[in-house]
Design a protein around this nucleic acid. Structure first.
Length: 259
DNA sequence: ATGCCTCCCCGAGGGAGA
């Protein structure tokens, strides 16, 4: 089974690029971030015609997450628990009903810039809530994963120019510490379980020729519970599509599970 | 570089992204 995460930066702007990539890569499950659409305007029929069940958690203009699945989805939940006043659509989870049921959580973690400030406070609070949900997934002792745009550069080798990010909300010590706290509950970061070393990125800024100069960062991650990590076969970044017409600034990352 | 693009709103130009 192939599960992908992809921050598409707007479903309306990316409908063609996403469709082409889906038909080439043929993932079973796709976790989408930044759909930037309300649920009613998401082109669900387009993806249903391609064989996917479509579940969205959108809002107007900003954020928004979705799950596309070729297997049935059950027990869908929208919104990260822990703050009923949070209006931002950044979390959706569901159980994928294949021969081994897998709980999949798609997330779009707040950017947090400028830091310090209220947006950075929101990022850190959101990560505290994420940690609580992560603990529940570990306690469940079931195959589960959290994947998406974490907006976290976890290590220096995850940035082409780490010095440039030193004062940025994606790389500040508190951001990285919060990420490692969650990971260290007992998750496997799928990409680093399979690949080591620098030069692997999932995001390149639209500005200043970042793609042409390979000035990227790796911020789209898969975190697997032990029962899910046992199934891990491979993890790959489809970086090539960043060079296509009208690309997202992120590229897809996907895992292969032996189920 | 308090922003070199690109997205969204919709029909100008500002907010957000990372």
């Amino acid at each position: 089974m192939k599960i992908a995460t992809f921050n598409i930066n707007g479903i309306k702007a990316r409908i063609n690029a996403l469709t082409v990539w889906l038909s080439e890569a043929n993932p079973d499950i796709v976790l989408l971030q930044e759909i930037k659409s309300v649920d009613e305007n998401f082109p669900r029929e387009h993806f249903e015609d391609m064989g996917y069940q479509v579940e969205t958690h959108g809002q107007k203009s900003f954020n928004g997450v979705a799950i596309l699945s070729k297997f049935p989805l059950e027990d869908i939940k929208r919104g990260l628990p822990g703050d009923d006043a949070d209006e931002q659509a950044r979390w959706i989870e569901a159980t994928v009903m294949c021969n081994t049921a897998i709980r999949v959580c798609g997330l779009y973690l707040p950017n947090g810039n400028p830091a310090p400030g209220p947006k950075y406070d929101y990022k850190l609070k959101w990560m505290e809530r994420l940690k609580r949900r992560a603990q529940e997934l570990i306690v469940s002792e079931e195959p589960a994963l959290m994947a998406g745009d974490f907006n976290i550069i976890a290590q220096p080798e995850d940035a082409a120019d780490p010095k440039k990010w030193q004062d940025d909300a994606l790389y500040l010590p508190k951001s990285r510490a919060a990420f490692w706290e969650i990971l260290n509950i007992g998750f496997t970061e799928a990409f680093r379980a399979v690949h080591q070393g620098p030069g692997h990125y999932s995001f390149w800024d639209y500005q200043a020729g970042s793609w042409q100069r390979n000035n990227g960062i790796r911020i789209d991650h898969f975190l697997l519970t032990p029962q899910c990590a046992d199934l891990l076969v491979d993890c790959t970044i489809d970086f090539g599509i960043r060079g296509r017409e009208k690309p997202s600034d992120h590229v897809p990352v996907w895992i292969s599970l032996g189920v």
